[in-house]
């Protein structure tokens, strides 16, 4: 789970560029952007990675080998093995809300969840990251000194003081070091779509 806002495109590109196409965990990206932004974020990220980047359609299965991007103007919820979307009211002015996605991931996947809060100019993500940490998941916060917007990582650190503080250029290698060496059997099948 990666959440970001202001400065996020640059930071996200750096992170996904550092991951191998065989990376064993599915990656979910929640980035704030304007309600009518079309699917450009997925296209832009695709240029930086061998993983498949897709914008999430409702009920899409969650599979390793993919970077899933939350669509603009919907909340992205994590269910057992698939996604649901919702048009609930924005939370803290945001839809998608990082908190909403992180909390639902923590509640469904518990210890198996990794939360990463990157650059951003608001405080979204901190409640969600706390939930992930409280449920025994792994919390990473981009070192605010390396963030274009330090407010979001700072807020996340206030909420989760024990989170791992990692400079932007080392986040990918940190993720590789905690991921299983190869996809667990349940993830190994590629999604039949796209």
């Amino acid at each position: 789970m990666i959440g970001t806002s202001w400065g996020g495109l640059n930071a996200l590109s750096r992170v996904v560029a550092g991951l191998p196409a065989t990376f064993a965990l599915p990656i979910v990206v929640v980035q704030h952007r304007s309600p009518d932004a079309a699917g450009f974020l997925a296209e832009l990220l695709q240029a930086h990675t061998g993983l498949c980047v897709v914008e999430v359609d409702d009920k899409r299965p969650i599979v390793a080998g993919y970077v899933y991007v939350a669509p603009a103007n919907y909340h992205l919820l994590i269910e057992r093995g698939f996604f649901s979307l919702s048009t609930d009211a924005p939370v803290r002015y945001s839809r998608p809300s990082i908190d909403v996605t992180f909390v639902s991931a923590a509640d469904e996947y518990g210890r198996r969840t990794v939360g990463v809060v990157l650059t951003g100019a608001n405080e979204d993500g901190s409640l969600g990251l706390k939930r992930i940490a409280d449920r025994g998941g792994y919390a990473i916060v981009q070192d605010p000194a390396t963030a274009e917007g330090a407010a979001m990582p700072r807020a996340a650190l206030r909420a989760v003081p024990k989170a791992h503080v990692v400079p932007l250029d080392r986040i990918a290698s940190q993720l590789i070091s905690i991921a299983p060496p190869r996809p667990p059997a349940e993830y190994r099948v590629r999604a039949p779509l796209t």
């Binding site: 009211a89 939370v91 803290r92 839809r95 908190d99 409640l127």
Partner: peptide
């Protein structure tokens, strides 16, 4: 339902969990 109006305070029970 219509979302948070700019300038208004976000609702308090946001955790919804």
């Amino acid at each position: 339902d219509h979302g948070v109006v700019p300038g208004s305070r976000p609702s308090t029970n946001e955790s919804a969990t």
